[in-house]
């Protein structure tokens, strides 16, 4: 093609519309547009209208609750820190922890925690627990497995 581009462009080569539309597209357009407008303007259902009204109020209430909770948390923390500033009348938190936790108390805690479970749960409690938590089939399976061993 040797024709200068300027000539090609000056002919507005698109004067004949190269695009096509489905048959009858423009004939039905007004109806479709008006139907869509009617659909978008249709009143909302009762439930969604109530939800639309309540939603912002709930969001506001939740925000207040969050702010109140955060404020309360900050205040409590501030009070605790003020109380625990290391004076003789009010010993600091670190001092209190040091006093509470001694090597002896740690050993006691370990021993207490390490006691066998069987000693704390009697047989009747165990049976009741299994009866309430497991089905008859599950219990039968456990019994069968225990007997097989």
């Amino acid at each position: 093609m040797n024709e200068p581009i300027d000539d090609l462009l000056s002919r507005r080569s698109d004067a004949e519309q190269p695009f096509r539309v489905p048959e009858g597209y423009f004939d039905a357009l007004e109806d479709r547009v008006m139907a869509r407008i009617a659909m978008e303007e249709a009143p909302e259902t009762g439930r969604s209208r109530v939800w639309t009204v309540i939603k912002p109020a709930l969001a506001l209430a939740a925000t207040f609750a969050l702010i109140f909770g955060m404020g309360y948390g900050v205040l409590s923390l501030t009070q605790t820190l003020k109380r625990g500033n290391g004076t003789p009348e009010a010993p600091g938190y670190a001092t209190t922890v040091e006093e509470w936790i001694t090597p002896a108390s740690l050993i006691n805690y370990y021993e207490m925690d390490a006691q066998p479970v069987e000693e704390e749960i009697d047989e009747e409690t165990l049976v009741n627990y299994l009866a309430s938590e497991l089905s008859f089939t599950q219990l039968a399976e456990i019994y069968a497995q225990a007997n097989l061993k």
């Binding site: 090609l8 080569s13 698109d14 190269p18 695009f19 096509r20 539309v21 489905p22």
Partner: peptide, 14 residues
């Protein structure tokens, strides 16, 4: 495109 029936020049232009 089934909704485009321009020639090569029109396709290139677009």
């Amino acid at each position: 495109d089934p909704w485009f029936d321009g020639d090569q020049l029109q396709a290139t232009l677009h």
